[in-house]
């Protein structure tokens, strides 16, 4: 739930999603769901010459399970807040 919440705070930010087949897609984060499926707008495929398959695609839905990394804008992430929230969630997990 924590990571899902983090992604929700990053909507409308520019991110780069790297898939497990090395395909990199840059775009504006429009939405995420509980599975960390990602909706991107105004997409741009890196190395488009090698991947012309998506030339006519302007926005897309990426299945969470195929994501390796998401590069996030550093300025949009409050690391102190993240660490506090992570500790809090870890505590709650232990109580259960």
């Amino acid at each position: 739930m924590l990571i899902f919440s983090v992604f929700k705070t990053l909507t409308d930010q520019e991110v780069t999603v790297e898939l497990k087949n090395d395909l990199c897609i840059k775009g504006t984060l429009k939405s995420v769901d509980q599975f960390l499926n990602i909706r991107l707008d105004a997409i741009q495929v890196l190395d488009e010459a090698r991947h012309p398959h998506m030339m006519a695609v302007k926005n897309c839905f990426i299945r969470g399970s195929v994501v390796r990394y998401v590069q996030l804008p550093t300025s949009a992430v409050d690391t102190q807040l993240l660490e506090d929230a992570t500790r809090r969630e870890a505590m709650n997990q232990n109580k259960r």
Binding site: I43, M54, K58, N59, F61, R63
Partner: peptide, 13 residues
């Protein structure tokens, strides 16, 4: 499970 990506096609493009 089989899906990597779904993209909306811009018909003009």
């Amino acid at each position: 499970d089989m899906i990597m990506l779904v993209g909306e096609i811009d018909a003009e493009e």
